[in-house]
């Protein structure tokens, strides 16, 4: 089965790309893919606790995130310097591993496919 990395680089809520990518990641896992997700740059804003998507009639991104382990998507990572640079306390549930950029380069290089170019 393929090793698939999903990369999230934009904040949630201004568009629905992040939610759409999480859905694709869950389907990837359902199809027995070896799925991991990397949050980098402004994508790490999606890891804030206490989100309330319902206030603008959207799904709450952090709730979608916490559902991932039940789909056996538990390889979740964030760019350490993106988190530090934003002085951010990220969610602890689900558990997110912090990676240096060198570790991210290796994560990317060891995939069969990388999904998630955003703009």
């Amino acid at each position: 089965m393929k090793r698939m990395l999903f990369i999230i680089s934009q904040p949630p809520y201004a568009n629905s790309h992040n939610a759409e990518l999480l859905e694709a990641a869950m389907v990837g896992a359902v199809f027995d893919g070896e799925v991991s997700i990397l949050f980098r740059d402004d994508g790490v804003w999606g890891l804030m606790p206490n989100q309330h998507g319902e206030l603008i009639g959207q799904k709450t991104f952090s709730k979608m995130l916490s559902a991932l382990p039940t789909y056996e998507v538990d390889q979740l990572f964030a760019c350490a310097s993106s988190v530090e640079g934003r002085d951010l306390s990220i969610t602890t549930s689900p558990e997110i591993g912090l990676l240096t950029t060198e570790q991210q380069a290796i994560l990317i290089a060891t995939q069969d496919v990388v999904i998630g170019a955003q703009r």
């Binding site: 680089s9 950029t101 290796i106 990317i108 170019a117």
Partner: peptide
Amino acid sequence: MSLHLVFNTAGYEACLKRKLSDDP
């Protein structure tokens, strides 16, 4: 070895930090 497609200047910055040095 990975191949990186860079679609804009900000993408170039993000890519440079996270590519292996020999990757095209």
